[in-house]
Amino acid sequence: NLYFQGLKYMVPGARVTRGLDWKWRDQDGSPQGEGTVTGELHNGWIDVTWDAGGSNSYRMGAEGKFDLKLAP
Rank of each mutant, 00 (worst) to 15 (best):
Y9Q: 09
D47N: 13
R18L: 09
K69M: 14
F66L: 05
D26L: 07
L2C: 15
D47T: 14
F66Q: 04
W24Q: 04
M10Y: 13
N43K: 10
S55Q: 12
K8S: 11
A71W: 07
M60R: 00
S57R: 15
D67G: 01
L7N: 08
N43I: 06
M60N: 03
G53C: 07
G13N: 05
G35K: 00
Q27D: 10
R59W: 02
F4S: 11
Y3V: 14
M10D: 01
Q5K: 14
Q5R: 11
S55I: 11
Y3W: 14
T38E: 06
V37A: 03
G13W: 05
G33A: 08
D26W: 06
Q5M: 10
V48P: 00
K23A: 10
G54H: 11
Q32F: 12
G29M: 05
G39Q: 06
W45H: 02
R59V: 00
G13Y: 06
A62R: 04
V16F: 03
E34W: 14
L41G: 05
R25W: 13
W45D: 00
E40P: 13
K65W: 04
W24T: 05
G39I: 05
T17C: 15
G33S: 12
Y9W: 12
Y9D: 10
G39D: 06
F4W: 15
D47W: 14
D26F: 08
P72C: 15
T36G: 01
N1A: 11
D28P: 06
L2D: 15
S57A: 12
D51N: 03
R18M: 08
Y9H: 11
G6V: 15
R18G: 03
F4H: 13
A71K: 09
G39T: 11
G29K: 04
A71E: 07
G6P: 09
G54E: 10
H42Q: 11
L41Y: 10
G33V: 05
T17K: 11
S55V: 11
N1M: 10
S57V: 11
M60S: 01
D28W: 05
E63T: 05
G39V: 05
L70W: 09
R18T: 04
R18Q: 06
D51A: 04
F66P: 01
Y9C: 15
A71D: 05
L2K: 14
V48H: 00
A62H: 11
D51K: 04
D28L: 04
S57Y: 10
G6E: 15
Q27Y: 05
T36I: 09
A71I: 13
D51T: 02
W24D: 07
Q32I: 08
V48Y: 01
W24L: 05
V48M: 00
K69Q: 13
Y58C: 05
L68R: 00
V16I: 05
W24I: 04
G35I: 02
